[in-house]
Design a protein around this nucleic acid. Structure first.
Lengths: 384, 384
DNA sequence: GCTGGCACTCGGTAGAATCGAGTGCCAGAT
DNA sequence: ATCTGGCACTCGATTCTACCGAGTGCCAGC
């Protein structure tokens, strides 16, 4: 059984970047003060906030060192210090308390999962709401992709004389649909016949899998079936690759004060494909936090991304993510993403029934999943 | 329920609101200049922009009059003038050219409708993208509500031994689904049997309509059916009342410069229920534009809303809306909403087949619209 | 190696001066 | 009557200056 990867918050070997404990304490104080106040932090504040019992002068000289080492910068001479991306990175990697969610938050999470029920899409959407509520960040929830789920039922329903709807129910509870237009009238019983035919042929296979349909003898039925297959082909191609839910974009507005930044980040959140790619990328690199330039996505240079996988039975089927300014509250965000991701994964797994016979899908599709990561680059569905 | 207080300035350009033609020209110039520049407009600019051939002094005195009549205000003494909501209203109601969309925009619309196909949700979503693209406003598309559509097919699909999915296909092409959990194993054939039973009982009725299911004799099947009906009940209750798609929220960020305004407007857009109510309200009051305080929704006092109905065969089944600052480009927004709304309606009607037997809907909660729509046309009217 | 002390920097704020777009008003022209 | 040119006036925005103070770097002494 493939256990979920031990996801270090960085990919970096821990030893190399270690810091004199006092420096570390100072750095940590600067970061957490700055996260709280959004103001450059001076030696005075550090002296008060950090546990270290040294004078401000000492702290100053340490801060000079930290600046040289790239953990801090001064916005201008004679101002306090601000963490660099590297500084945040250190902070995140050396977080003393990785997953503390306050009792009120815990309560919210618990209530959410007590209350949520039934419908996957709805659950994911509301989960994104929960996440942004917990963290005051924008959130992203990427649900399971459907193209690895088997078809449990396929059906052609007549909507009008020349219009039908191809409805596929997948093993993961998703429903895909597509209208099928026709240029001659199709009687009700032909829809039904074609439907039965499809059902027989498709049952248990994947949506994207080519299905061979034997001729039925009835020319109209065959034509309908052909059209349905055409619609199926379209299903695979377009639309978003996954179910994506973005929550609380308005949170971004008070995270940044430059309205232009808000605009551009919002604009990015609108492009779901980009967001999904970003999350998957970060996950594939084994990170759970990407800060500033780390994710290599220029327009989000002033943002940090916190992600947690959504795993069901050890397979990563999706992700939850949080997007905020680099000075976001990492501890809380990490904790929230973690716990919500985990419980959401459990819930998805539980609902779909652990015992669900995922039909072993024939051929290469399986192998693809079976092969262990290692060389898995662009694709999502990463980790071991 | 907030009764529509004074329909007065909506479409009534009855005597009271009419204006000396020169004043009208000046007002119009102020509004359109201000829409363009977002800067208070002075007499000098008006002299250049408006056709009237009078000196700036004359214009000034006219502007004083316009201010007294409430069409303009000065942000501060010795600044230019800015339109009030009433000023915008006049502008909108007396728009010379009701629906001019530039050729490039027309082209975009045409291409969109050529290219879009098949799937209603997808179509609506992409339409909201189109709208915000055309107008640089945030857009809202409210699709047909499903509770007046007949059930074309109902099906119970087993997903796991104790989990099934109730799938309803409606006459309008929508698919509603809901998981049904069970505390004992349900064999495949029971799902199938129950499914057939449901199908027979439900076919052609409304989702929300109570369905009487006779006992089948098989106790397990009966139990499954009961659970399915429970799930159905849940379907009616929760979730958004309609299909709502919001497009281009990031456009709001450059429409307002106060980041706080952006935040609050975004936050409102996140509450789909509120947005839908707002649009319906405006439509019900017979308006196609609601400016500032007109919609009576405090947090959006600095916004204007442009709506157009989505009508199929004369029935309003949804709406498209645009949300922007009160100084938005009304002509363009009106034109865009109008043309997209109209063509979307046609498309929905066309796709669903005009002949589709829609059960006459006594159910729709129509108290709201007690009075017959009658002459429901937008606030803007043709010239003459 | 830490600390207290000190001179220095420089962003932010406050006040004064200035600028200029725009106004209101009025006397005279049309 | 109505419009116009002219004029004094307003007041936000801009610039400049002064100044404060948080914060720094450095250093001599403990």
């Amino acid at each position: 059984m493939p256990t979920p990867p031990e996801r270090s918050r960085s990919g970096t070997r821990s030893g190399a970047a270690s810091l004199d404990p006092r420096k570390a304490a100072i750095l940590e104080a600067v970061v957490s003060e700055y996260i709280g106040s959004a103001q450059p932090v001076g030696s005075q504040h550090v002296a008060e906030a950090s546990g270290v019992n040294v004078s401000t002068a000492t702290i100053r000289s340490e801060m000079v060192a930290l600046e040289h080492e790239g953990y801090l910068i001064q916005p201008h001479t004679s101002a306090g210090r601000i963490p660099t991306d590297k500084g945040y990175r250190f902070f995140v990697d050396h977080l003393a308390d990785p997953g503390a969610l306050g009792p009120p938050e815990r309560q919210k999470v618990r209530r959410f999962f007590d209350q949520v029920h039934g419908e996957m899409e709805e659950m994911l959407e509301r989960a994104s709401g929960l996440l942004s509520d917990l963290t005051s960040c924008a959130s992203v929830v990427v649900g399971p992709s459907h193209d690895s789920a088997a078809v449990r039922s396929s059906q052609l329903v007549g909507l009008g004389p020349r219009l039908g709807l191809l409805v596929l129910v997948l093993a993961d509870g998703a429903v895909e649909k597509r209208t099928v237009e026709f240029d001659e009238d199709v009687p009700e019983d032909v829809w039904a016949g074609a439907s039965a035919h499809l059902q027989a042929a498709w049952q248990g296979r994947l949506v994207v899998e080519p299905v061979h349909l034997a001729g039925t003898g009835d020319v109209l039925t065959d034509r309908v079936l052909a059209a349905a297959m055409g619609a199926r082909a379209a299903l695979g191609r377009d639309g978003e690759p996954d179910q994506v839910f973005v929550g609380g974009p308005s949170r971004l507005a008070d995270a940044f004060d430059a309205v232009e930044t808000v605009r551009s980040v919002l604009a990015i959140l609108e492009q779901q494909l980009v967001v999904v790619t970003l999350l998957k990328d970060v996950l594939d690199r084994g990170l759970s936090v990407a800060i500033g330039a780390e994710h290599g996505f220029e327009p989000l240079a002033s943002c940090a991304v916190v992600v947690a996988p959504l795993s069901v039975e050890g397979r990563e089927v999706g992700a939850v993510g949080l997007l905020g300014p680099t000075r976001m509250n990492y501890p809380r965000a990490l904790a929230a993403a973690h716990v919500v991701g985990e419980r959401l994964g459990e819930r998805i797994g539980g609902t779909l029934g652990v015992g669900t016979d995922r039909p072993d899908p024939p051929t290469r599709r399986t192998e693809r999943r079976a092969t262990v990561p290692g060389d898995r680059r662009g694709g999502r569905r990463g980790g071991s």
